[in-house]
Design a protein around this nucleic acid. Structure first.
Lengths: 223, 223
DNA sequence: TGCAACCTTCACATCTCCTTAACGAAGGAG
DNA sequence: CTCCTTCGTTAAGGAGATGTGAAGGTTGCA
């Protein structure tokens, strides 16, 4: 993944660049909007980390220019913490907004979150569907006030289906999104996990009311 | 108010010094622990801003030396954001701990806060979860009223998990946050430390109730 | 220098969970 | 009604994750 860092403070650039290199990113840096623009056109980065406060042209201008002919994700860094700036940044098409001083791990997490989002991967957030609750942070699940015990795969599958409730997914899609792209697994494996999930969250596993089969297509979560 | 800044990166020293001069402080700077020690004895500063990563003697040594015969407030600057360093720093008698890259205004605010506290109360982020108590400042831990003996790593790990109770962390994240970013350590090492912690804080180390394993994900502290 | 505490790693034991296969049941088309 | 496809269901085997004890090495301290 290619990362373009545009900031005029060398300390920040160095620290951020080092961190992302360690994380396996390829990094390019610029200390001005002009330089940044040149690099942007040349390297076509997957994401831009952009300081709003730049010498001449402000980060806003830069953002606008990038947005004109690209949807490259942009993450704003700013010393200002007020809501007006945040709103302005996000309005302008920024994908996230981090206030200085920030934690490096936090920054990495956010960048990864944006890239995940861009590639369709889900963001980790609490999912609540009826009396079913899933918290990916603690990796806990409840049915009403009763805690559920789920295996890792069960959890991942249920989380995905509940998060995209109402939508039908084929077994192949589920394998792709839940198991991962490099998983070479028999599609029928999904059936088994669905079965197990039904025994856990359905009143009667034989007459499902949440995890529904769509014959010839796949499965969906309703609620 | 006299301020001693000890850091070997000229960029940082200059920026920080300029900022504090504008704020009305009298500043002295040193780019090594030796130089810093000489200045410290001569000018008797009211507060020391100290980079942990110094050429020869580390900032820790410097801090220890200062603490031997003075209670001069010390604020640590570090590129590392991990919990172990933070704990180590505070335990060593630092009054605060700022991670690079930092915001200048933030730094000023923290310095002022320390000076306002005068000779008074230290920054202690006491963590209390049920009958478990952790005081990073004194590096003491209690289980109920029984004092715990923990090794530095054990302490840092438990402190981090307890402070972020309820949240699951992967071994990799724990290595990153507790061990530090430049630690190239086998992920399974975490298991061993968890094991040791369990023998200390769990009633039965084989059936943990606080330090829980989340299979396929990592560990979390509950309570 | 020697000791002691501690950290890391390795090897092996244990256990959970995933995958697969097999067969039965249900749905749909002709 | 019958055949073919799709789905449900169960159990077994194995892969992979975690638990656990011990050895080796490092660091700090006396």
């Amino acid at each position: 993944m290619k990362l373009l860092i545009v900031d005029d403070e060398p300390t920040i650039v160095e620290t951020v660049e080092a961190k992302f290199r360690r994380e396996g990113f390829t990094t390019f840096t610029a200390d001005s909007a002009e330089e940044g623009m040149r690099l942007f056109k040349r390297v076509k980065p997957d994401l831009i980390i952009l300081d709003i406060m730049l010498p001449q042209r402000s980060g806003y201008d830069f953002c606008r220019a990038v947005r004109k002919d690209s949807a490259t994700p942009i993450l704003f860094i700013s010393a200002r913490a007020d809501e007006a700036d945040r709103v302005k940044g996000l309005e302008m098409g920024a994908d996230d907004y981090v206030v200085k001083p920030f934690n490096l791990s936090e920054l990495v997490a956010r960048v990864k979150a944006i890239l995940r989002r861009a590639t369709g991967e889900p963001v980790r957030e609490l999912v609540e569907r009826g009396d079913l609750k899933l918290d990916p942070r603690s990796h806990e699940a409840w049915l009403g006030d009763k805690p559920l015990t789920l295996s890792p795969k069960e959890y991942a599958l249920l989380y995905f289906l509940a998060r995209n409730a109402g939508q039908v997914f084929s077994r192949e899609t589920l394998l792709d999104r839940v198991w991962g792209k490099d998983a070479f697994v028999n599609a029928r494996t999904v059936d088994v996990h669905i079965r197990w999930l039904r025994t856990r969250i359905e009143v009667d596993a034989n007459t499902p009311e949440r995890l529904m089969t769509v014959r010839g297509v796949g499965y969906k979560f309703v609620g």
